[in-house]
Amino acid sequence: MPKTPPPIPPSPDAPSVPASATPRNEYTVDELARVSDTTVRNVRAYQDRGLLEPPEKRGRVGVYDDTHVSRLKLINHLLTRGYTLANIQDLIMAVDEGHDLRSILGLETAIGSRWSRERPKKYSLLELLQMFGDKASPSALGKAVDLGLLERDGLSFVSGSPTALAAGATMAKEGIPLADLLDAVGIARPHFNAVAKALVDLVVRQLDRYDADALPPPADVPALVDAIWRVRPLAMVLVESEMNRALEEASGDYLGDRVAAIMEKKLGHAPEGAAAERAAAKKDKSRK
């Protein structure tokens, strides 16, 4: 039997962002396939089997949204767990017929929808050369593809975050070697992954109040979904705040060491006790 704790009370400090009021991302079929890590062919096949709702038609263009992303992620996850499309079709039919599995849909969107509102953008090789100059070498582009910053699309490239790509181009124009910048991304990514997992665990932990193999009682789902939507933007605020703090500390440490080195060079020796004080300050900071 599932445990039935009391409903989650709304937080007075958190902005109320119910799922129905949250701005949605919109995608063409190509964009949907890309952000959902599948293919256009699979999207069409899932629609034909009734696993995926058809897009909204705007003229001759089909427009998909985050509910389609969440459904595709669920399908992908179940496929990797060994379920067949027939199994998944039975599940979806049960959901659509109003069984208790309907509870998973709101949670599916709240937890599984994209956190970014950026739309992927395609760039020709000429456009990348204009952005990065001669720094956009074949080896640099290959490394960007390996890191997932760019995706090959025939003779073009697709960026999932045009803002990040533009920031990288600006840094490269300021003289930062592109290879070093890509190395920094590779070094930082595992740390970002760890931070993201910790924050997602905080959100998903709301489900730990229930048995692992049982959905929350239907009466609890609306409050649970609203709580998750409220937590999501606050998690981003926390990440930005902590990143700003870390950058301030790192730049302050560098500036202090650089100024101290200049002073030592001008004086011909380190001021009495200066090295020991710097070492002690760094040791204290590492303990925090």
Rank of each mutant, 00 (worst) to 15 (best):
D213M: 12
K135I: 02
G82E: 10
V225T: 02
L224W: 01
A194L: 07
N42H: 06
G82P: 14
R49T: 02
P18R: 14
L199I: 05
N42I: 01
V259N: 11
V40K: 11
D180H: 14
L155S: 12
G50L: 03
P15R: 13
L247W: 04
P271N: 11
A167P: 05
S36F: 01
A212V: 11
D65W: 00
Y83F: 15
L147V: 03
E118L: 03
Y64D: 01
D208G: 07
A45L: 12
E53T: 08
L178M: 06
M243H: 14
L72K: 09
S156N: 15
E127P: 08
L149I: 00
R71G: 07
A279C: 09
Y210T: 00
A235M: 11
D220L: 08
I176Q: 11
E108R: 15
D226A: 14
M263V: 14
G133C: 02
P6V: 07
H269M: 13
D96R: 05
Y123L: 01
V195M: 15
D65Y: 00
V61D: 01
L207R: 06
S103D: 06
I111N: 12
K285R: 15
D284W: 15
V204D: 06
W115L: 12
A219V: 06
S36P: 05
A270I: 10
S103Q: 12
P138Q: 04
A45N: 08
Y46D: 12
T28G: 03
G256M: 13
P55A: 03
R60Y: 02
A279R: 14
P216H: 07
A212M: 08
E97N: 15
L215D: 02
A166S: 10
V195Y: 09
P54H: 04
L128T: 01
P233L: 07
V40M: 07
S137I: 00
A188V: 05
